[in-house]
Design a protein around this nucleic acid. Structure first.
Lengths: 153, 153
DNA sequence: AGTCAATTTTGGAATCATTCCAGACGTTTA
DNA sequence: TAAACGTCTGGAATGATTCCAAAATTGACT
C-alpha cells in the first residue's frame, strides 16, 4: 500500500482518537476506503466497500462515520441536490474540483497557494468568519468529449 | 420599481421568448419574484410569492419554470443536499457567494473580472470543456457572530 | 470467564426535496 | 364552436438522508 495512503489513514485515526472516538473495525475499513479512493466516492460506494469485509454493515453506520469525520475536519463533503453527495477523505481541506456533467467524475485540482491565508483575508474584507470554501468547475471531461464527437460521426 | 429590476425581467422574458417559450401569467410573476429578490430564494419562497397573485399555483409549476430558466441560462442554481436549493435570477452568470452556516443567508460577492476568460483559460489547461463554476465561501455572517457573542454574556 | 454499563450497530420507518405523470384547464387558430 | 396544443394541477413515486428503538459488541472490573 502507498505510504501516503497509510500516512493519511493514521492522520484520520489520530484525529478521531483525539476526539475520544474509538476506531472500530468498520470505521477503520471506511478510513481505508476513503484514503485509497481518489474518485470521490458516494455513500453507496463506501457502503459497498466496507461490506466486502463486514457484510452486515448498514448504511446508517456509513452516514454515522461520515458525521464523525466531518466533525473532526477529516473529510470534505461535496453536496449535490439531484444525486448523492460525494466525499474526499484524502484532502480534507477546501480545494477545487473538476466535475464532469456527463459521467459525474470528480477530479482534484491543485490547491491554490496559501488557502487559509486567502480565507483569512476574505474574512477581514467581508466581516464574515469564514471556515471553508467550495470551488468547483463544471464541464465535460476529455473522455466524454471524445465520445460525443465519435457518436456524431 | 427599480429600473435595473425591470431591465432584468425584460432580459429573462426575451431569453424565454427566443426559445419559443411563452410568458404565462404565472411565469411572469415568477420572473418578477426572481428579479426583485436578492436573498436567493428557495422554491418554497418563490411558490409563496407567486401564490399571492395566483393562489392555485402548484409547486410543480415553479419547478417547471426553473427548468426553463436553467435551459435558457437565466438562473443560477445553488445546490444543497441537506436543504432546499437556492436560486439567483438576478445574476445568472457564475459568481461567488457568502453563505452563513447559521442563518442560511446567501449574499452575492463581486464578480471576479473576466469570468469567462478564466473558464476559457482553465479549459485549455485541463482539457475539460468547462461551462460554469461554483465558488462559495462558508462561515458566519456578522449578525450571527454578534448573537453568539451576546448569548455568551 | 462473567457481569454491568456504555457505546456501536442494525434495520426499518420517517422526512423532505425533487421528479414524474395523467388528467384538467386555457388559449389559439381555423 | 371545435380541434390542437401547450400549460397547470394534485398526487404519487423516487431517492438521499435522518431518526430511532432494539440488538449486538466492547471494555472495565470482578
Amino acid at each position: 500500500m502507498d505510504s501516503l495512503v497509510r500516512a493519511r489513514i493514521d492522520e484520520m485515526r489520530n484525529a478521531l482518537l483525539n476526539q475520544g472516538i474509538s476506531i472500530t473495525r468498520r470505521r477503520d475499513k471506511m478510513l481505508q476506503a476513503l484514503a485509497s479512493n481518489d474518485r470521490h466516492p458516494s455513500v453507496n460506494e463506501l457502503h459497498a466497500e466496507v461490506r466486502r469485509w463486514y457484510p452486515s454493515t448498514s448504511l446508517a453506520t456509513i452516514y454515522n462515520t461520515i458525521e464523525l469525520l466531518k466533525d473532526a475536519d477529516q473529510i470534505l463533503e461535496l453536496e449535490f441536490s439531484g444525486s448523492a453527495n460525494r466525499y474526499d477523505g484524502r484532502r480534507p481541506q477546501s480545494h477545487p474540483h473538476l466535475i464532469c456533467l456527463s459521467c459525474e467524475s470528480i477530479e482534484d485540482m491543485d490547491v491554490e497557494s496559501s488557502h487559509s491565508d486567502h480565507l483569512d483575508r476574505l474574512s477581514e474584507d467581508t466581516g464574515y468568519r469564514l471556515v471553508r470554501q467550495r470551488t468547483d468547475y463544471y464541464g465535460f471531461c476529455p473522455d466524454c468529449q471524445e465520445q460525443t464527437a465519435a457518436a456524431s460521426d
